[in-house]
Amino acid sequence: MAESRAVNEDRDGRAADADDAPPTGPRRLLIALYLVFAVAATARGVVQIATKFDEAPLAYALSLFSGLVYIAAAVGLITDRRWSRPLAWAAVGTEMAGVLIVGLLSILDSTAFPHDTVWSRFGAGYGYVPIILPVLGLMWLWQTRPNAARD
């Protein structure tokens, strides 16, 4: 069984080992990451605002806001319009600032910023992916910028 699988992989794998493949791969991974976090953060924000908004209104409003930022970033990454890259830059930049600010505030003031939003404690509740994600996003946007060759 292992033998037959290896044969399949060889046939399928041929496209993968070439270095001249179009740079769509990392972008698709970013899309997957951003879509998952868009759903997770938005749903969490909606539930928090619907069930316990009074406990920490600022944090839970920011929770929903973070979800909308992830949605904007995902849209910017998926689409290929003139506004796509500016939207992605703005969204990922906002996300970077947001995770740093909320992460810091959640440690300094755990009443106003309880530990259960996506950006709290720099995303510790989500395996620190929330703070790694904007770094990856900014790196990808920088490396694939349209005038990269001319610089």
């Binding site: 399928d12 496209a15 993968a16 493949a21 769509t24 791969g25 990392p26 698709r28 991974l29 899309i31 997957a32 990451l33 879509l35 998952v36």
Partner: peptide
């Protein structure tokens, strides 16, 4: 999650498709 990973792994016939399915 898995439908997303499945779709991306089908579209992206490189190692990155495998990473997408792995993540989901």
């Amino acid at each position: 999650a898995l439908p997303l990973g499945f779709y991306l792994a089908r579209e992206e016939r490189t190692r990155w498709g495998s990473v997408c399915l792995c993540f989901t």
